[in-house]
Design a binder for these strands. Structure first.
Lengths: 307, 307
DNA sequence: CTGTTAGCGCATTCAT
DNA sequence: ATGAATGCGCTAACAG
């Protein structure tokens, strides 16, 4: 691999001039400029980005820690982030981590100068202290640092109203296990019920600790009627649908399932009604945040899509 | 951020000694060794990986270009690769690119010393020349360099036999648009038909040029009977299912859809019968290939999963 | 306008 | 066993 020395030698100018031509490029005589460009061409020279990183103290790399429980949830985010980053001349260093210690370790390894910034995406668990230095995106319990939140209350409200419009009245809520988002979802659910003067039935709200299957089995065992499920994320929705089918409950005829998590990009018609988030906008904002701008964005609102 | 100079000063030894303690770590007096470690601890010193990369001429980064048309197809690969890489102390530089020029540009930007190696994953189109230097994983037309192929003929054969076992005889094949994999799939399909003495019906094999919807509409318009679809990938399967439902064809009762591409990790019960690939093994082999080992692996075989 | 010099942070000879 | 010196490839400050 040719280095800047080779170029400067071939072009009969100093390294500094070569550097000037390739970077700032102003204040260089036409003549030596051409000589440099010719040499660059001939040697197929590309500046070594590692050396550049060392002097400039910037790597143009951004660490992205996908803290999602299931990969599917990460894909939409990843695609949007990669697009925004590469348009900005930055690179995406990917890492998966679905527990607090794993996130901590990832932060550790992405530090030490390898990245200019780190973001944590989609965590559904309490983050370790190390993550306080990162930009948090759709993480359940946002810290005090820069972050991007999702408006789950709005989503929940929308979902309920959609289900009402589909003549569903007995909506089971299968919520996030905990965190602020869970509270928001519950609040939206309650708001919706109230707005149509439906009573709040505690039995229809599934607690955090149990699995989706267990929750549904409990309802079925107790002969509690329901005609819709409002589920926090896509994966749980799939679990729920699988279980309902085993009990011969037609989906969506008998039980309609709504997924709040639309982070999975939809191709063709969506499988089920769900929220779709404006991921490109999310990515843009994320870039602004890692750019150091200290903006507080309002929670992002998604839009309804349905089969 | 503390540098090696700070440590050497605090420990009252030279930079070389510090370096020795942290790297090779042998041939150092116990005394100065402790002093260094103490200083490191106190300053919370972490060697700057960029500087290390510069001297060692190794970045421990691997570029991964996801050349898949749809993100979903990439997720399984990504997760498996990231796991294998991070276990090996390497980092994954992610890039999406779904056209030859995009791949070329990605190769360009990932070169220039940023990565030790690059791999291209899941390309369903002809790769540019630049990609010849990369390790090719599940790319339709493999080049002459190191690569990892998938045994699509085996998959196709398995799929057909599964469909036969489900009392399906009129199987529509919706193949890849072109490339070696398409030929393999067709070969497996033909083998299967032959093995149960079914005639090959040209009308049931859908050509490359048309979209899934058009292909199916054509069949329906011509009143050609079919009771199963063998589809090359998950996305097309979803498209097909959506269209079938619009024509009131019950899936899977009337028409069973089989997806050859199992790169989408399944959670819970699979949506439809499909092939699942041993992605961790794939990732292991990919690592061996970028490690420079010049091994030729046999095409990878997947296993059937069904609802 | 351009060359020289001095780092960036570290690893690695080569002496001692 | 350890320190001084050199270089990785490049940028930037400072003179000319």
């Amino acid at each position: 691999m040719a280095s800047i020395n080779d170029v400067s030698r071939l072009a009969k100018v100093s390294k500094a001039t070569v550097s000037r031509v390739l970077s700032g490029s102003r204040g260089v005589k036409e003549e030596s400029r051409d000589a440099v460009l010719r040499a660059v061409e001939k040697l197929n020279y590309k500046p070594n980005v590692i050396a550049q990183s060392l002097t400039r103290q910037r790597t143009h790399c951004v660490g992205v820690i996908c803290a999602t429980e299931h990969v599917q949830q990460a894909t939409g985010y990843l695609q949007a982030l990669e697009k925004a980053l590469s348009q900005d001349g930055k690179h995406l260093l990917l890492r998966f981590a679905n527990s607090a210690p794993a996130v901590a370790q990832a932060m550790e390894e992405l530090g030490a100068g390898r990245c200019d910034a780190v973001m944590v995406v989609g965590a559904r668990f309490a983050l370790p202290d190390e993550a306080k230095q990162a930009v948090l995106i759709d993480c359940l319990d946002g810290g005090d640092g820069p972050q991007l939140a999702i408006d789950y209350q709005f989503a929940s409200l929308t979902a309920c109203h959609y289900l009402f419009s589909q003549q569903r009245r007995k909506i089971v809520l299968i919520n996030f296990s905990r965190g602020e988002a869970a509270e928001q979802v519950l609040a939206g659910y309650c708001d919706a019920l109230e707005s149509v003067a439906l009573p709040y039935n505690r039995q229809l709200v599934c607690g955090s600790e149990e699995s989706v299957s267990v929750a549904l089995q409990t309802l079925i065992n107790r002969h509690i009627a329901f005609d819709a499920l409002l589920v926090s994320d896509y994966i749980k929705s799939r679990e729920a649908i699988a279980l309902l089918r085993r009990f011969q409950r037609q989906v969506p005829q008998e039980v309609m399932v709504f997924s709040l998590d639309g982070a999975v990009p939809v191709v063709g018609a969506p499988e089920m009604p769900q929220m779709a988030w404006p991921l490109d906008m999310l990515a843009q904002r994320a870039l602004q945040l890692i750019g150091g701008e200290n903006i507080a964005f309002p929670p992002l609102r998604g839009s309804l899509i349905a089969p």
